[in-house]
Design a protein around this nucleic acid. Structure first.
Length: 576
DNA sequence: GCCGTTTTCGGCCCGACTGTTTTCAGTCG
């Protein structure tokens, strides 16, 4: 599918246009990109079927965009884009990732200082070349350096939701390849970590050579790093590396255990093996030279006196002790989820209608969905005001009625995502919030507030008896933004006292993150896993929130949207 | 650059904050 490739180019063209200070055009390019991204059919297919004319039917695609698409499909290039790159040859994406640096600043930095990439930018900032520039200053320079630090930390790692679908596709192909008996993902991807460096795949194959050749010739492979007797390594067009290791069948479990890691967990398990007079390696468990286990992971753990430990727990953060004492958690599973309560519709900045969102939720086997559009403070998301909320409530009421008539067991809940303002109040009147089924509140502005101030700001919001869920509690966005300053212990305490549910956000926020989830669980708090969907296909992100929850040792009972609706409602303040 | 019935031209994605200014541009959500 060329959809994503073209969308990426359109997004970049939008940035170039922004650099030039062009009005509105960038928005048109971004809109076209979103449209392509969320298209279910292959744009190449659409074009092949109906030519330019059918391209024009895609929303946000006009004459000019259709022309670009045609050009790309035919020549693999878009002339206008090539021209832009030539006139300003720099790494926009990289530079823009630095918080506080946007397209306009990038252009100035390039023209005045020749900054082309992150490295140039860092050098310029460190040698204090930025401060004297017109429109810049000391503070900007300092912020840039901080931004670079963050960008560096997250470099080379990819968000799990970007990688897992690609990795799964490859895995399926390998599994189906002739002579492949078994195959599995391993590494941090299998442990469900929020970011992934590279993908590890293990397989058992009759003909190692053939399996390797198949692997390195897969579509999406951009470069082959190498191919040996047991391992092949490639670079994918999506930007990450992927390894395939072919291991003997009798060692598959041991290898899987070893390559799943983490390193810390492996050190601990090997230590236990040693204490029992055994040797654990990626080839198996040995007593002297005799192999006593290794075909399956379960067998490996059993041989050292442990029950099976779920991959998400393998961080040597107490899972070994828990296993020894029979106290391992029974982790929540994706299939336990009965609904999603943080979903946006086209009433605000979302893409799909309430009905479309509902339909998708039903197809997923959910029992309920909660519509929680932004409220008025967030102008960019076209947040709803009091009046609009009431109007929306009417529409939801009608839809619910329709389901009842059709005798379908499904319910739409009506909520909203309010904004916690600087003083801890929210932007919708209480008498309106009271009427909704539930209310989400989140911090969306003044993120650089001081810790004490931010903490009491949120504490105050939690005390509001209409606010049921505190969304994305620490404000971080993976790879983009650090969490804001907040006293998390105090937030946990306040959540406990007020019965506020903490959200685990499945989108690129993945916030709460694993360690915080565990702290919340230990405190006996209830959480909810939501997707924060802005369009229907985002509803699928749920599994990443679940993975994060599993890493935080969460069980079904800790997560309120595993409950049937009647029980779920009991956890909201007004019904408690 | 896209879109459309209140418009085929003139609206679109706005408001707060920051850091820089001396009245505002750029960035962010």
């Amino acid at each position: 599918m060329k959809n994503q490739e073209i969308a990426k180019i359109f997004n970049e063209m939008a940035k170039y246009l922004k650099m030039e200070g062009v009005d509105f055009k960038p928005f048109a390019y971004e809109k076209a990109a979103i449209s392509l991204e969320s298209l279910n059919e292959d744009v190449g297919e659409i074009y092949a079927q109906g030519g330019i004319k059918s391209l024009l039917e895609i929303s946000g695609i006009g004459k000019s965009m259709a022309g670009h698409i045609e050009e790309y499909l035919k020549n693999g290039k878009i002339k206008d884009y090539e021209k832009m790159k030539k006139s300003l040859p720099l790494q926009i994406d990289e530079l823009i990732r630095v918080e506080g640096v946007g397209p306009r600043k990038v252009k100035i930095l390039y023209q005045k200082l020749g900054v082309k990439n992150l490295k140039d930018l860092e050098k310029a900032a460190k040698t204090h070349k930025i401060t004297p520039l017109f429109g810049f200053g000391e503070k900007t320079e300092k912020n840039i350096l901080q931004g670079i630090e963050f960008a560096k930390r997250s470099q080379g790692r990819f968000l799990i939701s970007k990688i897992l679908p690609v990795a799964r596709e490859v895995l399926e192909k390998i599994k189906k390849f002739e002579g492949v008996k078994e195959a599995s993902l391993a590494g941090s991807l299998r442990r469900g970590r929020e970011t992934i460096g590279d993908v590890d795949i293990l397989a058992v194959a009759k003909n190692v050579e053939k399996a390797m050749d198949f692997f390195i010739a897969l579509p999406g492979v951009e470069k082959v790093w190498g191919k040996g007797g047991t391992k092949a390594s490639v670079h994918m067009g999506d930007g990450f590396d992927m390894d395939l290791r072919v291991v003997p069948e009798k060692s598959f479990g041991a290898a899987l255990q070893y390559f799943t890691g983490s390193k810390e967990h492996n050190v601990a398990t090997r230590r236990i093996a040693i204490s029992k007079g055994l040797k654990l390696s990626e080839y198996g468990i040995f007593r002297g030279s005799k192999m006593i286990a290794g075909k399956t992971e379960e067998g490996v753990y059993k041989a050292i006196g442990l029950p099976y430990i779920e991959p998400e727990l393998r961080e040597n953060e107490g899972e070994i002790e828990a296993a020894l004492n029979g106290k391992l958690p029974k982790l929540i599973e994706l299939k336990n989820i009965k609904g999603d309560l943080h979903c946006h519709s086209n009433w605000d900045g979302g893409k799909n209608s309430i009905e479309d969102m509902v339909k998708t939720a039903m197809e997923m086997g959910y029992e309920y969905i909660g519509i929680s559009d932004h409220t008025k403070f967030l102008a960019i998301e076209r947040g709803l005001n009091e009046e609009q909320l009431l109007k929306q409530r009417e529409e939801i009421k009608q839809l619910n009625l329709k389901f009842k008539i059709k005798n379908l067991k499904f319910r739409i809940l009506h909520g909203c995502e309010t904004n916690i303002l600087n003083d801890g109040s929210v932007d919708i009147k209480d008498e309106i919030l009271e009427k909704l089924d539930y209310v989400i509140a989140g911090v969306h502005s003044s993120l650089k507030m001081e810790k004490k101030e931010m903490t009491s700001r949120v504490e105050k919001a939690m005390k509001n008896k209409n606010i049921d869920i505190f969304a994305h509690p620490t404000g971080r966005i993976v790879g983009q933004r650090d969490k804001y300053q907040i006293d998390f212990d105090k937030i946990l305490q306040q959540a406990k006292e007020t019965g506020t549910i903490l959200e685990i956000n499945s989108s690129s926020r993945l916030d709460l993150r694993d360690t915080y989830i565990r702290r919340a669980k230990n405190k006996g708090l209830k959480m909810i896993i939501n997707t924060d969907s802005h369009r229907k296909d985002h509803l699928n992100l749920m599994e990443y929130g679940v993975a994060q929850a599993r890493r935080g040792w969460a069980e079904k009972e800790d997560i309120v949207n595993t409950f049937p609706i009647e029980e779920l409602l009991k956890h909201f303040k007004q019904n408690a």
